[in-house]
Design a protein around this nucleic acid. Sequence first.
DNA 1: TGGATTTACTTGTGACCGCAAGTATCTCCT
DNA 2: AGGAGATACTTGCGGTCACAAGTAAATCCA
Lengths: 154, 154
Amino acid sequence: MTEWLDDEEMAAWRGLVDVSAAVMGALEAELIAHHGITTGDYGVLARLSDAQNSRMRMCDLASALHLSPSGLTRRLDGLVRRQLVDRQPSADDRRVMLAVLTVEGRTFLEQIAPLHLDGVRRHFISHLSRTQLRNLSSAFRSIERGFVSTDRDG
Amino acid sequence: MTEWLDDEEMAAWRGLVDVSAAVMGALEAELIAHHGITTGDYGVLARLSDAQNSRMRMCDLASALHLSPSGLTRRLDGLVRRQLVDRQPSADDRRVMLAVLTVEGRTFLEQIAPLHLDGVRRHFISHLSRTQLRNLSSAFRSIERGFVSTDRDG
DNA sequence: TGGATTTACTTGTGACCGCAAGTATCTCCT
DNA sequence: AGGAGATACTTGCGGTCACAAGTAAATCCA
């Protein structure tokens, strides 16, 4: 059916797997150690802070974070308990719950975001030249573009 | 402390996160749908088949797979129950358990490996030119090299 | 030699996540 | 209008994982 992967292909594939695991793992560990928050929770806060009015529909937030609906519900439970996020029913659509960043949530995020970004730099960006950075983005864009069209079958 | 990420940096970073999630997710889904096996289990079988005598010490296998010792113990439980892997105490060091690929395990792996590789091609490699592939590998190598030296502190 | 330390693995426990099912609401179609 | 189906969220449940503690064995060292 298919031939094996050659050296360059295998290096790229293993690189993706190992690098993403290593970088994400390091960021997760730092975030927990320094601020007692997981990257999952951080991701919620960061997304909400980028959103219009610091609020998003649960379903949009879930898909933005690669999370299942139930996963997001429970993740939000923790953030709500810590008063970093608020739940608000939507006026437009009463099925919808909005996740809203609280003032405390925004303050907290603003405190930790610089350290997180610093981690992204230290573990990822700082090891790449400008050219490598551009090449990487372009390669990722190619893959993402290919992904939507190859979603079912290829 | 740190300035924000510029567009190229952000594109590379989000690309890594999104592409690895999307590709791994697609491979996981295909492997489960077509062969009823998770990528975690597949990874164990694949590693063992590459190893000398189709066997590895638990601790080496765990670190190769980015898995904690307890995680590997339980993952192996399932594979042993399905007769794909065997546990053997090491003669050299009686603390050590060896995970050994069984004949059934090898047969099974040989059946599914082509499909898995096909998935890697379809979702990842096929979207990249040779040049992009080389650039990607080189970028990943840079990051991995930087990682060992920046392991603690930077 | 023999006790202290390190290493390898397993088990107890708790966190997280996805799927499936349940409820509420909206939308579409006749 | 109103019923069928789609959509949004939550809850029950099972699977997976990591951390901590426990056990066994090897290594170090005085």
